Simulated scan of single mutants.
Amino acid sequence: MLRSFLFAGTGLLVFALSTATPAAAQARVPVTDLATTQKLVKQRQVVVLDVRTPAEYATGHLRHAQNLDFKAPDFAAKAAALDTTRTYVLYCASGNRSGQAAAILQEKGFRKVVNAGAFKELKAAGVKTE
């Protein structure tokens, strides 16, 4: 009885591990506090990345933000071309894509990555937009 239970338990574990999504796809960097974001986006050496689609970016974005579409097929390649020594502040529509994008950058060796969260909330808080 014990032997079959252990076998069944191992089978469930193997099944669970084989159907799980890769950690990179699940990992998200939490949204940082607004005060930290406001300080960072004012610094010249900080790179602000809007990871929304180009259509979303065109409707308005944070001042000096660069568009790096998280949904684009070449996102990983473009992200890999960035300078890993710089500080990056990422945002999107809700904080979800920017959290996932930040996690990917961290996996690629970026040490200074901040998830600023939702554009609408940043704009409402008075962060300068274009």
Rank of each mutant, 00 (worst) to 15 (best):
V48S: 05
T84Y: 01
A77V: 12
E121W: 04
Q100W: 03
L2M: 11
A27W: 00
A8D: 05
R44G: 15
L105C: 08
L40K: 07
V89M: 00
T32Q: 12
D50I: 03
P73Y: 04
G11Q: 06
A25H: 03
D83K: 10
L6V: 10
A58M: 09
C92V: 04
F110V: 11
L34M: 14
A103P: 04
F75C: 01
L49R: 10
K120C: 03
G126P: 10
Y57A: 11
V127Q: 06
T32V: 12
T19V: 14
V51P: 07
A103F: 01
A20N: 03
T37C: 07
R63L: 15
E107L: 13
G117F: 02
K71G: 12
V46M: 06
S98H: 00
A81K: 14
P30S: 11
R3N: 11
N115E: 09
I104Y: 09
V41S: 02
D69T: 05
L6K: 05
H61D: 04
L40T: 07
P22K: 02
P73V: 01
F5P: 00
S98A: 02
G9Y: 06
K108L: 15
F75W: 02
L13V: 07
A76K: 14
G109F: 10
A103T: 04
P73F: 09
L13I: 10
F119V: 06
C92Y: 00
R52Q: 10
C92M: 07
V31S: 06
V29S: 01
T129E: 04
K71C: 00
R3A: 14
H61C: 09
A102D: 09
L90D: 09
V51R: 11
L105F: 02
P30T: 05
L12N: 02
K71Q: 13
V29H: 01
Q43S: 04
R3K: 14
L34E: 05
V14R: 03
Q66M: 12
K71I: 09
Q100H: 14
A81G: 05
P54K: 14
V14F: 03
R63K: 15
A55G: 10
A80H: 04
A58Y: 05
A35L: 08
A27P: 01
G11E: 06
K71D: 10
V127W: 07
Q66E: 14
K42L: 09
R86K: 15
T32S: 15
F7C: 10
V31Q: 10
K78Q: 15
A102R: 02
V89C: 03
R63G: 10
E56A: 15
V41Y: 00
F7R: 12
A65N: 09
Q26S: 06
T32I: 06
L68I: 05
R63F: 13
G99P: 00
V46F: 04
G95F: 05
D69H: 03
T59L: 13
A58I: 05
R97S: 12
G126L: 08
A118G: 12
N115F: 01
R97Q: 14
V29W: 01
L6N: 05
S94K: 12
I104Q: 15
